[in-house]
């Protein structure tokens, strides 16, 4: 399978990438390419221009900044997985990065790519949602920040505009318990359902593959934060959520899985 034809430009800086995006209706950024190239090979995406930002070392870092850790968008899953800073201050993110795909995929895929792709079935978007992370977005008119809660808009759709580049992810440090439960039937598959729990003062719970974007399990969160038992909170996991049916699972089975996994994740995060 080949992608459609496209022009390829290797950007020498973020500013150059932004100016190329601004001059085009449908140019796309590429870094590791492990979300975009599969779509292009299936002809589900056919951008006229690919702007390669994969070598911009200015966006490849993991920095301790006091109350949070700042992660450059081009940091690879492998580097998240092995980062001493993350293992110490945001261990769930390091763990979740190690759950993405397989080792070869993790050698290429980047956190910025995964989040900008915005797949509700992917691990990292749900993790940054549970972590209440902040996305830093740069464009010709400057920089803005978007909380994870407002970043994921629809199926493979995020808050990013055409001339914008996701440059950094700011992740609050986690002092309490956490857990990530990914249920799949074969090694390296996407989660049929996944659950991330972060207890940082209050408890946040996010769901993988329960909708077109990563979702918060708001009813479970409210219940546990108001003193309900884990069992009671878990039973509310899919309240107000309309999960998809597909070859892997019916909507009903997904609802069942969500409750079971929220229960297990809350138990682990509370242990």
């Amino acid at each position: 399978m080949f992608p459609s034809t496209f022009d390829y430009v290797r950007a020498g800086s973020v500013a150059e990438a932004i100016s190329i995006l601004d001059g085009s209706d449908d140019a796309k950024l590429i870094a590791g390419g492990h979300s975009l190239l599969p779509l292009m090979k299936l002809r589900l995406a056919a951008p006229s221009t690919l702007v390669d930002i994969g070598r911009l070392s200015e966006l490849n870092y993991i920095e301790d900044r006091g109350d949070h850790v700042a992660i450059g968008a081009l940091t690879r899953h492998r580097d998240l997985e092995t980062s001493a800073v993350l293992k110490h201050s945001v261990p769930i993110l390091s763990h979740v990065a190690g759950e993405v795909g397989d080792p070869a995929v993790r050698h290429r895929g980047t956190i910025g790519g995964s989040i900008a792709h915005g797949d509700g079935a992917s691990d990292l978007p749900a993790a940054v949602l549970a972590l209440d992370a902040t996305m830093v977005v740069r464009s010709a008119s400057g920089e803005r920040t978007v909380p994870a809660a407002n970043f994921f808009k629809g199926f493979l759709e995020t808050d990013l505009g055409q001339g914008e580049v996701l440059t950094e992810i700011r992740v609050p440090k986690v002092s309490g318990g956490w857990a990530y439960k990914k249920f799949n039937r074969r090694a390296q598959d996407w989660a049929i359902v996944g659950v991330a729990v972060v207890r940082n003062g209050s408890t946040r719970i996010s769901l993988v593959n329960m909708g077109s974007t990563p979702l918060r399990a708001s009813a479970s969160e409210n219940a546990i934060n108001q003193g309900a038992s884990i069992e009671e909170a878990a039973n509310l996991a899919s309240e107000g959520i309309d999960p998809p049916s597909d070859l892997n699972a019916s909507a009903e089975y997904r609802r069942h899985l969500a409750s079971v996994l929220v229960r297990r994740a809350l138990q682990e995060a509370s242990a």
């Binding site: 399978m1 590429i30 492990h34 599969p38 070869a104 995929v105 050698h107 290429r108």
Partner: peptide, 26 residues
């Protein structure tokens, strides 16, 4: 040809990569 099976695995700068999911220009 979908980065699942690993038959196309090569090393890029010493690390395993699925070469069906990387452009030659990259």
């Amino acid at each position: 040809d979908t980065s699942s099976c690993g038959a196309c695995t090569v090393h890029v700068n010493g690390e395993s990569v699925k070469s069906c999911t990387m452009l030659a220009v990259q």
